[in-house]
Design a protein around this nucleic acid. Structure first.
Length: 202
DNA sequence: TGGGCGATTGTCT
DNA sequence: GACAATCGCCCAA
């Protein structure tokens, strides 16, 4: 199915399950790598304490407030890049974090980028790994998925999915009762569940 | 102006 | 299972 921006005008919690099974492609000078998305996580902008946009718009998260269907990238832990897809109409911050995928195109290139991966399932098992495998950098933030080196192909029909709590996020959603994390059961590339352990406070 | 910390990963025990 | 690596952003002062 061709890229349809109107899909992304909904809040991320509605878009997230639709992205399971979608194929994200990135064309670089090195070649083309595509991944089939198998695990995602939703962030709800200003309402969501776990979201980068919770404390309002800043330099780092401006893309999240922009037009839906764009790529939002951020740098974390001093060394990792994660990729999101912006949702909700312009002016509203909402995004879906791509947590894991299966490389379906450009396998050799993905392997050369992910030298620490021992198996192909490891190539994009985790948000930062997915970004590396696809060759996504901070410079790719803001790219329009409708046009340019990044492309997204939606699945013909929705995939069966499971839901659960988010991982590695401080804040419980501010009391919002949503399923935050979505994955395709039985996929080898889906990272194992890790409960979030709050950091010690004194 | 500076300290704390994060939507993580790889390595070591 | 525990922990170090590593840097840009935010908030407090």
């Amino acid at each position: 199915m061709a890229f349809d921006r109107t899909v992304f005008e909904s809040p991320s919690v509605e878009v997230a399950p639709l992205l399971l099974g979608a194929v994200l492609s990135h064309h670089t000078d090195d070649g083309l790598v595509s991944a089939r998305i198998t695990e995602v996580e939703a962030y709800l902008g200003e309402l969501d304490p776990g979201s980068h946009a919770f404390r309002g718009q800043g330099k780092k998260n401006a893309v999240m407030f922009g037009e839906p269907g764009h790529l939002y990238t951020y740098f974390t832990y001093g060394m990792h890049v994660c990729a999101n897809i912006v949702c909700s109409p312009e002016g509203t911050a909402s995004a879906v974090l791509l947590r894991a995928g299966e490389i379906v195109e450009g396998l050799d290139l993905a392997r050369s980028r992910r030298t620490t991966s021992r198996t192909d399932a490891d190539l994009a098992m985790g948000p930062a790994r997915l970004a590396v495998a696809l060759g996504i950098t901070l410079a790719d933030g803001g790219l329009d998925l409708a046009d340019g080196p990044m492309a997204l192909r939606m699945p013909g029909r929705p995939s069966p999915f499971a839901t659960g709590p988010r991982t590695g996020v401080s804040g419980d959603g501010g009391g919002l009762d949503f399923p935050w994390r979505f994955w395709m059961p039985g996929e080898p590339s889906v990272s194992p569940y890790k409960p979030h352990v709050p950091k010690k406070r004194y």
